[in-house]
Nucleic acid binder design. Structure first.
Length: 352
DNA sequence: AACATTTGACCAAT
DNA sequence: ATTGGTCAAATGTT
């Protein structure tokens, strides 16, 4: 609570600037990589790569040691509606205890994301919360809303950052296998896999598509969320969608009623980057497999990847302790996004 | 009524 | 024994 709100701390301001710079460098990086090869381009690319490395290092330093010990006492910490019922016959006579394996997380960690919003454009359902030993903040456990109906096993763990209470660290596990549009990931400009035109960079739209992005103040203005464009794209390029995403069905059948209780608000969080002239930029996760769908952090997709939808997007997060007062946005991640993570090779795979 | 969240209990891994 | 992840009944919300 010390930092956010009225006055930003110097560290926060610096971080924001770093994020800004990082994002801009990422854009430049992509432009270079997608430009026609040449000595100048290569050289510039190396310079940009170096800048990225330095930025990464800077983030590591700042975030690795910058623990102000804030420890904001979450409202969730000591909550609890007074009396708590006991499970009737739980203790000894559990008639149905155990049918699926438990224990430590088995599925591999897909990625770690740090964001100022819990929204990532997907539908999650909270199934647990626990106080973690080495952390003052509780960890919340989410699974994909479509586990029951589609068997989607994607999960994520969310924990409020100790060093910066306005940020949340989200660990993604497994992969989305559901087809609900709401679980479609945020998008990135695909790296030149399909030999995009040299002027591909011109296709990137950084302008907000509609006025509904009031919550986004991302430095690079990468919030080009366009739900209608997404639909359009899906309708007109179903094959492409199925090819690249596997997760987007052209018609949004259950869009309004997927999970009735909370009408899949995240449906508004799907985006498609369109290029000038109506050609949409090929989008996909950085992974070659659908695994990408596990998350859609901007930091992994520095070019146009964005995930912050509005606060009305994303189920299962409104109850997280001490949610950000503002819609927030993905501000770039910190530890996991610059290549010192398990997903190293997933990051910025624009080149080579 | 249906669905989502809360939260204590259960249980496997360490 | 401790810790972290999950289950599932109770409760809240729409």
């Amino acid at each position: 609570m010390a930092s956010s709100g009225g006055g930003r701390s110097p560290v926060t301001a610096v971080l924001d600037d770093l994020v800004d710079v990082r994002d801009r460098v990422a854009v430049l990086q992509t432009v270079l990589h997608e430009s026609s090869p040449g000595p100048t381009t290569v050289e510039a690319g190396e310079l940009v790569d170096g800048m990225m490395a330095k930025l990464s290092s800077a983030f590591s330093v700042v975030l690795g040691t910058g623990d102000g010990g804030v420890a904001s006492s979450l409202s969730g910490a000591g909550r609890g509606p007074s009396g708590r019922r006991k499970r009737p016959g739980a203790a000894s006579s559990g008639p149905h205890r155990r049918s699926s394996p438990r224990g430590r997380m088995k599925s591999p960690l897909s990625r770690t994301v740090t964001a100022t919003t819990l929204t990532d454009g997907k539908s999650w359902r909270k199934y647990g919360q626990k106080q973690i030993h080495d952390s003052t903040n509780p960890r919340s456990y989410y699974r994909c809303t479509h586990l029951p109906d589609q068997g989607c096993k994607a999960k994520r763990h969310v924990q409020q950052s100790e060093s910066n209470p306005t940020e949340y660290t989200m660990d993604y596990y497994g992969q989305h296998t559901c087809r609900d549009p709401s679980t479609f990931p945020s998008l990135i400009v695909q790296s030149a896999a399909a030999a995009p035109p040299p002027d591909c960079a011109n296709l990137i739209s950084f302008a907000p598509i509609n006025g509904a992005n009031s919550g986004f103040t991302a430095s690079t203005s990468t919030s080009a969320f366009a739900h209608h464009l997404m639909k359009e794209a899906a309708d007109h390029h179903p094959m492409l969608f199925s090819r690249f995403s596997n997760y987007y069905s052209s018609s949004p059948p259950a869009q309004e009623g997927v999970s009735s209780g909370s009408p899949s608000p995240a449906c508004h969080g799907k985006f498609m980057q369109y290029g000038a002239g109506g050609q949409f930029i090929n989008v996909t996760g950085l992974r070659t497999s659908p695994l990408t769908v596990g998350s859609a952090p901007a930091e992994y997709w520095p070019v146009v990847g964005v995930a912050g939808v509005d606060m009305d997007a994303g189920a299962g997060m409104d109850s997280f302790p001490s949610p950000p007062s503002s819609p927030g946005f993905l501000s770039g991640s910190l530890e996991g996004s610059f290549g010192n993570n398990v997903c190293d090779d997933d990051l910025f795979s624009f080149d080579s």
